[in-house]
Simulated assay, not measured.
Amino acid sequence: MSRSIRLLNLLQLLREYRYPVTAQVLAERLQISQRSVYRDIETLRAQGAEIEAAAGLGFQLREDFLLPPITMNETEIEAIVLALNWLNYIPDQALKSASTSVLAKLNAVLPEHRQQLLQQTTLRAINVWLPVDEALVEQVRLAIRQQVKILVDYADEQQTISSRILWPFALGYFNDRIVLAAWCELRDGFRHFRIDRIQQLSLSQELYPQFKQQLFQQWWTQEVCRSTTDKN
């Protein structure tokens, strides 16, 4: 990791903490030494960052010097907070971490009078999800992003397991479950797969032959009005 990237990552971590955070915690999050943290803090200060140090408590970013203020009304702020809060409950650690990062960035760019509203908003979205392998969920998102085929062992309603080669192009978050929309080579058609029923998954290096947007549009036209229950 280059030092410039490390400095940006450190700045982002400081944004995420509303209270002082120790050099030890920052070092563990960034996987660097505490000595490097202290050096990087001084570098950021020299570049204009207002970072306070409290003895025994740690460091706190008081004013973000990189991001300009943006304007949002009360309803827009509530909508964003509600959506990001919902992300904190989904079984996907990467998206949970991303929601925390986005909230910290938002707090950094809002005018002071809007920051207070952001911190005081009490709208909440709470979901209870069926247990899934969070690493597997992240793999599915990665496959969709990269538009590569995946190989899965899938258990249907009767617990019959079949091996499939899929072209994953969309994920749907439905109440208590996550559903994958994909083209199934075995069935030669669109199918829906509950993530909690995928027993094993491996990423292929092979791109599927269409863009995910094209597959999504075809699926939307043919399947969106049908039930999203598993029909495999």
Rank of each mutant, 00 (worst) to 15 (best):
R29E: 14
E52G: 08
V25F: 00
Q210I: 04
L14R: 05
R187M: 04
I161L: 07
V102R: 08
E134W: 01
L207V: 13
S202R: 13
R177V: 08
R45G: 02
T229W: 08
L67M: 13
W129Y: 12
L186W: 01
D176A: 13
E206D: 14
P131I: 06
V81G: 00
A94D: 13
A49V: 04
L82P: 01
P69V: 06
E78C: 05
D176K: 11
V137M: 10
L118H: 03
E134G: 01
T221N: 12
A125L: 12
E78W: 02
V37S: 01
V132W: 01
L151R: 15
Y38L: 14
V137P: 02
L11H: 13
L201R: 09
Q120W: 02
A170Q: 15
I195W: 01
V37K: 00
S101N: 04
Q34S: 07
P168H: 04
L44K: 01
V21Q: 03
A181T: 00
T75H: 09
T43M: 13
K231H: 15
I150R: 01
P68G: 03
I178K: 01
A23S: 14
R62F: 00
P20G: 05
P91Y: 02
L44T: 03
T71Q: 12
L166V: 09
E78T: 08
L123G: 14
L67Y: 13
Y17K: 09
W220T: 10
I144D: 06
L166N: 04
K149F: 07
K96R: 14
F59Q: 00
I32N: 01
H113R: 12
T229C: 09
A135I: 11
L7D: 07
E16R: 14
P131C: 04
A83I: 14
W167D: 09
Q199F: 00
A155D: 05
R114F: 06
E16Q: 10
L207W: 07
I195G: 00
I5R: 11
I32W: 00
R15Y: 04
I144A: 06
L67W: 10
I80W: 10
N107T: 05
G56H: 09
I77G: 06
E112C: 04
